[in-house]
């Protein structure tokens, strides 16, 4: 079995109002020096697959077809 972690983040230049709200909250809590905060999503996926290359290709297809909206989001796949 292969375990992977997929990280989905907003593309640069796409406004992230949630990230902005978190950024302001952190500053308000007294964490000084907080610069830009961008929020995203993490998916931990288990695959019944032993071929690492095949798993990586499948995971990328999953991102392209469902897990990420590539109009506004980037993704990265890390096999753990």
């Amino acid at each position: 079995m292969i375990k992977a972690r997929i990280t989905v983040t907003l593309k640069n230049g796409v406004l992230d109002p949630q990230g902005k709200a978190i950024e302001h909250a952190l500053s308000g809590m007294g964490f000084d020096g907080v610069g830009q905060v961008r929020q995203g999503k993490v998916f931990d996926v288990e695959l019944a697959e032993s071929d690492k290359a095949k798993a990586e290709a499948d995971l990328k297809a999953m991102c392209d077809k469902l897990l990420a909206n590539t109009v506004i989001e980037n993704y990265s796949v890390a096999i753990t």
Binding site: V14, L15, P17, Q18, A21, N69, V71, I72
Partner: peptide
């Protein structure tokens, strides 16, 4: 939009 029948994306309202 998610089905690709229309272009672009609909994101969280800026007011949250």
């Amino acid at each position: 939009v998610e089905a690709g029948l229309l272009p672009g994306a609909l994101m969280r309202n800026t007011s949250l």
